[in-house]
Design a binder for these strands. Sequence first.
DNA 1: TTGTAGGCGTTATCAA
DNA 2: TTGATAACGCCTACAA
Lengths: 336, 336
Amino acid sequence: MVTIRDVARAAGVSTATASRVINDSPLVAGGTRARVREVAARLCYSPHGAARSLITSRTHTIGILLPELYGEFFSELIRGIDQTVQQAGFHCLVASARHTGPLLEAALRSMRGRVDGLILMSPEFTGELSRRTLPEGFPVVLVHCPPSELHFDSLLVANDQGARAMIRHLAGLGHRRIAIVRGAEGNFDAAERLRGYREALVECGLPNAAELEVPGDFGEESGANAVRTLLALPAADRPTAIFAANDSMAIGALSALRAAGLRVPEDMALGGFDDIPMARFMTPALTSVHVDISALGACAATRLLDLLQGRAGPAPYRETFATTLVVRESCGVRSS
Amino acid sequence: MVTIRDVARAAGVSTATASRVINDSPLVAGGTRARVREVAARLCYSPHGAARSLITSRTHTIGILLPELYGEFFSELIRGIDQTVQQAGFHCLVASARHTGPLLEAALRSMRGRVDGLILMSPEFTGELSRRTLPEGFPVVLVHCPPSELHFDSLLVANDQGARAMIRHLAGLGHRRIAIVRGAEGNFDAAERLRGYREALVECGLPNAAELEVPGDFGEESGANAVRTLLALPAADRPTAIFAANDSMAIGALSALRAAGLRVPEDMALGGFDDIPMARFMTPALTSVHVDISALGACAATRLLDLLQGRAGPAPYRETFATTLVVRESCGVRSS
DNA sequence: TTGTAGGCGTTATCAA
DNA sequence: TTGATAACGCCTACAA
């Protein structure tokens, strides 16, 4: 392994000077700089990260701690984060863990000294981030976390607003009995989308019936099951529209509705959440609530970098990421 | 920040002894060990990764270098890798970059000294991994890379075998004109799937017509476009079956077939590749070639860990990951 | 069984 | 403008 000493020796300077060249210090003569640069390139020198961060106490690495990851949500999020931090010369240390107290703590502690800051996404997080878990003043940006800890910077998604927009739209089309397929139990997003649904029903003067709130787990199969449950209701209680708390469940629902011989949207309107790329290619094209996930990641990364580079605004930073209703055929509007 | 010196002082021992306790050395008396453990826990001590890796020259981190990431493929892959390496006490440093020569080199060099080994996935990789790019003997496992560099350990997916299975199945159902929607230009997987398609046609005694090979880019829209191209062919040239080189394109194709008023599979059979979770929820349920992506990641990780921990078998290690044809309704078999 | 001391590769603080 | 030299936190001979 070629060290800075090798470079210094080969260039006939001290390690201090070599270091200055590597770090673009202005305190070095032009000729010396050129010579050192040339030697470093020839020897394929690149600085040893660990040694560097030992002395500077900066790792130029951010941690990303995710719940058990699946689906395209996470690659989008990581993509948004990685693109942003790479431009600033940072790296991403990614870990996923079940966010029960002890496991989360273990994951966090194992990152100690390896990252300068952390993006923590934990929609199922309960309990609290104690000082024990996270060193005092350690830069953290929470994404998609329940706002139980108001003193941390956090980024939320306007789940309730998106859900409300969907329900208002369905109500505007004349639907009076609108069902929801709920997301996973204990999931913060799921809870918020449910809240938006309920609020919108009240707002629109529609009945809020318990039998119209069907459990789900964000998976396709649970969407299909929910439809079966709803179709088993007495005819008078049946909804005319279904709002699935994410697109996977909406697609499962669509499949089950077809299997039951119902037409969408004529016999049953359907809406989803997330607006995954595939949504528009369903038949009928799926109405959904769009979330720009990679932008969400980029936003979290930007805030964290601001924090790390001392140009952050006042804390705690709290931002709610907007969502947009994308109307397609599945809820009654025929596209051209 | 609490260092090992703090622990040692508080426990009334030397740093050497404290270090031994932390590293589970047997050379320490039971009482001493207990006392140090207790103090370490109370002080919430955890070792500083950078300092540790400076002396041991092991980072307990593996690098994962991916092409521009999108879709659920990557989260699955990362999941498989992360689960495996976490159990061995390792971390994952993830980066995505366009794998053109200079960018790839830059990404690799920026990881120097930060990772003990590397998983490199680069289906679009051309050129070669030179000694300049990668230090001699640096542990690397290639995933999904063109086998241009036979001296590296690598893991491939049986793309051609999967494609052949699909085509044989379609031929077995009586299809004589089978089209393919190709994957992205310059992508190794795409090339292999195309190769499998062509080989199977020969094997089945079917014509290999240029107009039946339609370009695509792995995105939904390109699948839809491909269908439009195929439907514009003179009636005699039209295929009766379409093999899309991934499920996203198959879903796009399905959408376009519906829009054109064709029934699947009666008027046109359809098959995909990857078997994403949604495939079975399409209407009709999509026949596809299943790839267990997280297992692929786990396999790569296991090999890399073997390499790092000196219990690796002979190099170069080369394994081809099997694929399985999953037959559903979209190519003519009616499910119950 | 424990402690002392040296060094991993780098940057920062002095003096020159 | 440059060069010695002392850290950074940790591990590990070697000595006791």
